[in-house]
Design a protein around this nucleic acid. Structure first.
Lengths: 315, 315
DNA sequence: TACGAGTTGCGTCGATTGGTGCGTCGATAA
DNA sequence: TTATCGACGCACCAATCGACGCAACTCGTA
């Protein structure tokens, strides 16, 4: 009594791909039900499903679909994922498809992440990010994995108008991963760095990346989050007296230099004010504000502030 | 005990189906009298009748007959459909206590959390929440600790206009805590529950609480997050075919019943559609939508859907 | 830098399959 | 005598089938 014979639709739903894709995988790669009479409906046994699961996992790791299919086809038992991840060089094989996210030459990991995102596979997304974080650290993960994928999703969303769910899901997973990373390497001591988004700015992911990078570098910080009004920001500065403040602006619309001036004029003026993000324009920044080019520079600036503080205190 | 043995015709008349259909249901789905000698007449006990009632109600709601039969067959005592029907009648509505600052009577932990929040002390906030989660679980923590504090902050913000940075910081810490909690008790298996905010709805914290509670209960879910347009939601539903969908609306402005109707009209209609949050109005909800009163009820409803398989053919 | 070739996911279309409710028929239990 | 039984078959409809094509991404080449 094997009631586990899943239909094509059920399997597609479980994997997160379209039904037509299942058919394509069957006829292109031979990844179909073990017994299938042409013309009749496909009935996937648990074994067939396991094969497809392998296919799903490998593609989520960035392996070319053709290659993944070859592996899945002759896979008597679940294979170690390490061996796969280790072989970074992909055999010649292009990639694409209507529902993919452009990641350029950001590497197979980014490609896999994009695929997992498209099928709303939160588990695979989180796993990929977590692995990248432990292997390459926060800065590298952000620059070479997360940012390309996020930019790709953003571009696609800007042109087609869709993919909003994908964007939200990925953002959430990234946020969670950063939070977990920060928590794992959480240093102690007073927080002397304040991270905040500009007023009306709702993209906080880059700031969270910075926070995770700071935690990784042994720095403590305070994160105010998105959409912080100037009054609230100044209020927080005067109350906590941070050594450095990072203000993130993603677009020009939220990059009001007045906010930076307000920071510089605050009662307890921070040693360092960083205007981070592509929103700021160099020629409109008030004097005394530093504009880091990328995540790495922001981190090194923060580290420098910490060192100078330690030195001045003679600790 | 055997005094009420109904004949096939009586049962058929009571259910509103043909007699032959009863026979069909017996031999196709095993939904027959508990003791039946082949060739003899069927005698339905009240228990058998209850099973058939479940079958009828589920199919009337649009559930696939095979699936409905599976529910009805393996229904010991607590029937999900019963819970569903019962929840239609709203239990005595408990609005979150009309006081100005409800934190006061929410216990010392809430008071301490509020104080840490005013201090912008992220570490203390996170620690308090984490301890509450491990001690009392997700539901209790949400109801007795987090919600009072969040409501209190929200009220303050509504009247004074300040505290935005506090609100953000606490939200972020809560979000992180839920993420960590979900990750710690992360079950495996295909996600059969979809969590999403209504269109334009940007409060996702309650949904994250629900997610954490589901993970705690051993359920997997998919979280779409805030501000999900109807099109994206329907797209995700048709793509992943969840058994249940929870749509959160915090305020009336975001509670458009059209979104629920769109869910019910989706190609692969979910078994259960939950309209969660104070935004929804009971009298405007389309038929077939359940409105849980609180977090605990939402969790129990989701648990009821757990064991459902999505294949439409029985053993 | 631009462009064509190879890859790949998936939408669309007309035809078919398979699940479902129920009517019918000869035989049988009540 | 009547209601029901088991078996068979039919009509309806959603899901799926196979085939085809589109769009988009990558990469090699000019």
């Amino acid at each position: 009594m094997v009631d586990e014979a899943l239909s094509a639709g059920a399997v597609a739903r479980r994997l997160g791909v379209a039904v037509t894709t299942l058919r394509t995988w069957h006829q292109r790669y031979g990844l179909g039900p073990s017994e299938h009479i042409p013309g009749h409906h496909r009935r996937y046994t648990p074994t067939d499903l396991a094969r497809l699961e392998i296919m799903r996992r490998l593609t989520a790791e960035g392996v070319s679909p053709a290659e993944a299919a070859r592996w899945a086809r002759q896979a008597p038992e679940p294979m170690p994922a390490d061996a796969v991840a280790r072989s970074r060089i992909r055999p010649p094989g292009r990639d694409g498809g209507g529902g993919t996210i452009p990641v350029g030459r950001a590497g197979p990991a980014a490609r896999g992440l994009a695929r997992a995102a498209m099928r709303l596979d939160a588990a695979a997304i989180s796993e990929t990010i977590a692995r990248a974080l432990t292997v390459g650290g926060v800065v590298a993960t952000w620059d070479h994995l997360l940012r390309p994928v996020l930019v790709g999703i953003g571009d696609r969303h800007a042109t087609t108008g869709g993919l909003i769910e994908v964007e939200h899901l990925v953002s959430r997973c990234v946020s969670e991963a950063f939070a977990a990373s920060s928590r794992a390497a959480a240093p102690s001591g007073p927080a002397r760095i304040l991270l905040s988004c500009a007023d009306e700015e709702q993209h906080s992911l880059p700031l969270e990346a910075l926070g995770a990078a700071l935690a990784e570098a042994g720095l403590t910080y305070r994160m105010l989050g998105a959409r912080v009004p100037v009054a609230a920001l100044v209020e927080a500065v005067t109350r906590t007296g941070p050594a450095a403040v990072v203000l993130w602006s993603h677009t020009r619309a939220t990059a009001d230099p007045t906010q930076l001036s307000a920071l510089l004029a605050a009662p307890r003026r921070p040693l360092l004010v960083l205007a981070a993000g592509p929103g700021w324009r160099a020629d409109t920044l008030p004097a005394g504000v530093v504009r880091p080019a990328d995540l790495a520079e922001a981190v090194s600036l923060a580290v420098a502030v910490r060192d100078s503080l330690d030195q001045s205190r003679g600790a």
